[in-house]
Simulated assay, not measured.
Amino acid sequence: MPADAPTILATSGGIVAGERTRWEIGPLTRHAIELAGVTGRAPRVCYLGTAGGDSTEGIRNFYDLAQLAGLHGSHVQLFTMPNVPDLREHLLSQDVIWVFGGSVAGLLAMWELHGVGEVMREAWEAGVVLTGVSAGSICWHVGGTTDSFGPDLRPITNGLALLPYSNGVHYDSEEQRRPLFRSLVAGGTLPPGYATDDGAGLLYRGTELVEALAENDRAGAYFVDRTPDHTAVETRLDVRRLR
């Protein structure tokens, strides 16, 4: 059952520490699943841990939390070869595609190699809800800031560009993120875009931001624009708190 419009929930959150499992689904990811509008059966949620090198630990943690949450979980891995015979068929059959964090540069390279980006666009247009955290947030945008290349952050500019904006993640928790994002927008390396503190997310319908959300009481979201004199202007957005 597709969402009623192309939907992306791009986050710096969506998972919380579990009591009996490593992770549990946080309010942001729960909201993404609700947006799929599934009734009468378990939602089909597919995990992609490409940015983390398809680690077996990440895959195991996903299945643990999926079982706990009553989801029909599956995963796509690309190392050392795709684990499903038809990536397109598998991804298009999902209600929600959930992309985890790690190296966004590595993720985009592997997706390009296997044609995943084209399938993601098709799934998005078909109403499969796309969500993710960190690298799984930046990937839907034109680009953002990344530690994919080392501890000194650098720009990434070859995102899927389903959304015509840049994206800043971990805006409040990693000291390089905010100043670099602002300078990249100011200088034109990145287009104007949206940023999230840890625990916040951005809900897009089509290519329009419809609201900023948070799963805690403090997380903020921001729009960073470029002025004609090449400076950055940051505007704090209204945030709806999920419970």
Rank of each mutant, 00 (worst) to 15 (best):
N83P: 07
L113M: 15
V104L: 11
T80Q: 02
V128L: 01
A105I: 14
E89K: 11
V96F: 00
N83R: 05
V84Y: 01
T131N: 05
L108T: 13
F100H: 14
Q94W: 00
E125S: 06
E112I: 04
G101Q: 10
T80V: 05
P82I: 01
Q77D: 09
G106L: 12
G101R: 10
E112M: 06
W98R: 13
M81R: 10
L108I: 15
D95Y: 03
M110G: 11
V116E: 04
L130R: 08
E118R: 12
M81D: 05
L78M: 11
G101F: 09
N83Y: 04
D95V: 03
L108S: 12
V99Y: 04
V99E: 03
T80L: 04
W111E: 15
V104P: 14
G102T: 09
T131W: 06
A126I: 04
V84S: 05
W111N: 14
R121L: 05
L87F: 09
V99N: 07
R121C: 01
L78D: 06
V128M: 02
V128G: 01
V128A: 01
G117P: 12
V99Q: 11
W111G: 14
Q77A: 12
F100N: 15
P85Y: 03
L78I: 12
M120T: 02
P85T: 07
Q77S: 14
R121H: 05
R121I: 04
H90Q: 15
W124P: 08
E89Y: 05
E122V: 01
G102F: 05
L130M: 10
L107P: 13
H114Q: 13
E125F: 00
L78Y: 07
A109Y: 08
E125T: 02
L92Q: 09
D86M: 03
A123G: 04
F100T: 15
A123T: 06
A123H: 03
M110C: 10
G127K: 02
G115S: 07
L108R: 14
I97Y: 01
R88H: 11
G115K: 11
L108M: 15
L108N: 13
V99T: 13
V129G: 04
G127F: 00
L108Q: 13
R88D: 14
G102Y: 08
V96K: 03
A109W: 04
F79I: 12
Q77E: 12
V129D: 03
V84E: 04
G115T: 06
A109V: 11
G127M: 03
V104M: 09
V119T: 07
V104T: 15
L107R: 13
M120H: 00
S103A: 12
A109P: 10
G117Q: 03
V128H: 00
L87C: 10
D86Y: 04
Q94L: 02
E89I: 02
G101S: 10
L108A: 12
L78N: 05
V104W: 09
Q77P: 08
S93Y: 03
E118W: 00
L78C: 12
V116F: 07
P82Y: 00
D86A: 06
E122C: 00
W98N: 15
V128S: 01
G127L: 01
T131C: 11
E125Y: 00
W111V: 15
L108W: 08
A123R: 06
V116P: 11
L87V: 14
L113W: 10
V128I: 06
V99S: 10
A105Y: 10
M110E: 15
T131H: 07
L113P: 07
H90P: 13
D86I: 06
S93F: 02
